[in-house]
């Protein structure tokens, strides 16, 4: 369920459509998952842009700090993000 919070919406990265920009709020999952995402350049607080989503719950292509990453759907579900609304500043 999307959560409303001070001008931005908390949701899963997997739900974001191509072209949208979001800020990572939380990375769920264990040590392994956090480490892997962190070293590929995705950290809590980072701004990312979804470039392309795959067919049939396929992977997503995201852009973070100038590099592009393909991210499996399972992982994208565990990344919680804020969708930035145009009117207010982001929470992070």
């Amino acid at each position: 369920m999307p959560l409303k919070n001070a001008g931005s919406t908390l949701t899963e990265l997997a739900r974001i459509r191509p072209g949208e920009q979001v800020v990572i709020h939380q990375i769920e999952g264990g040590w392994h998952m956090r480490q892997r995402l962190n070293q590929m350049g995705m950290h809590v607080g980072d701004r990312i842009r979804v470039v392309q989503t795959g067919a049939f719950r396929g992977p997503m292509l995201v852009e973070v700090n100038g590099s592009r990453l393909a991210l499996g759907c399972g992982m994208a579900r565990k990344v919680k993000v804020f969708v930035e609304n145009s009117e207010g500043p982001s929470v992070v």
Partner: peptide, 10 residues
């Protein structure tokens, strides 16, 4: 399985 996490180079 750890799932895919792959850099897509230019």
């Amino acid at each position: 399985t750890p799932g895919m996490l792959l850099e897509i180079p230019a």
